[in-house]
Amino acid sequence: MQGDPNHKEMLKFAFLNGKPGQSFEIYYHSEEFKATKEIVDTVERKSGRMLDVGSGIGVTSVAFSLQGFHVDAVEPETGPLTGRKGMEDLIEEVSKSCSLQLAMHTGYLSEVNLPPGYDVAICRQVAHHFADPVRDLSQIRALLRPGGKAILIRDHVIYDDEDKERFLREHPMQSFYKGENAYKKEDYVRFAEEAGFEVERVISFTESPMNYWPSTAEQIAIVGENVAGRPYSFVLKNPELPITGEAEAP
């Protein structure tokens, strides 16, 4: 697939072309990162820690480390295109000119020992791959501080079984590794609530470049949601601890 010129642009913007430095520069200056940062900036920084679940080659991890977060990047893959080797190459390149606070952890979240207290957890194009979404979201919530937020970014949404069949048929990667998946919007909300989250915001496909970049708002205005597996994003809040010890009103 990498040698096919028909897939060159798709791989470039999916950060799958084997050029982590280029991928980072594209992401860091993208409308998607700008929109994601706007949401992250609404979260009060108490610990200054961010969890990046399914970090891939680390473009989001490095981007938010440059914003002052100490980032723990968790990724089970180890190769150069989607995993640890790609992240190592990216960190080496960026570290030549910038100081990063970033730790890599190879494995699934359940296999990695991390202390709780994160302000933010980022899951970019990850939640639709969870083997057990409620379990995995529960693990993420357990690592957040009270009031911390998880941001699920660019998760595929389908309307019904027929729409899912269309999505799997049209997704360019599905024929290569058979690992794609999608859920209804209501399913993501249910998974999050069953995991103990408060669903603070559902961001539809056409609402934000978090979902439709590298397309433009003008292009999306023409097609609307008529896109197979249109990505949505979700902002989830770990509930605040109840306030105790206050005197009851008479």
Rank of each mutant, 00 (worst) to 15 (best):
L81F: 08
T82K: 08
T82G: 03
G83T: 06
G83H: 05
G83W: 03
R84Y: 11
R84Q: 15
K85T: 14
K85W: 09
K85A: 15
M87D: 08
E88W: 10
L90T: 07
I91E: 11
E92D: 13
E93V: 07
V94H: 09
S97N: 15
S99R: 15
S99Y: 12
L100G: 03
L102N: 01
L102G: 02
H105L: 03
Y108S: 07
Y108F: 14
Y108W: 12
Y108A: 04
E111F: 00
V112T: 02
N113D: 12
P115L: 13
P116R: 05
P116G: 06
P116C: 04
Y118R: 05
V120L: 01
A121L: 03
A121N: 06
A121D: 06
I122H: 02
I122V: 09
C123A: 04
Q125R: 13
Q125S: 13
H128R: 01
H128V: 03
H128M: 05
F130P: 03
D132W: 00
P133S: 02
P133N: 03
V134S: 03
R135W: 02
D136V: 01
D136Y: 02
S138N: 10
S138E: 13
S138P: 08
Q139I: 05
R141Y: 07
A142F: 06
A142I: 04
A142M: 08
R145N: 08
G147W: 00
G147C: 00
G147E: 00
G148T: 01
K149Y: 06
I151G: 02
I151A: 02
L152G: 04
L152E: 04
I153T: 03
I153S: 00
R154T: 14
R154D: 15
R154A: 15
E162A: 10
E162R: 08
D163C: 01
K164R: 14
R166G: 06
R166F: 05
R169H: 14
E170L: 13
Q174P: 08
Q174Y: 11
S175C: 11
S175L: 11
F176M: 11
F176T: 10
Y177M: 13
K178V: 11
N181P: 09
N181F: 11
A182P: 07
A182M: 07
K185N: 14
K185E: 15
E186C: 08
D187V: 08
D187C: 09
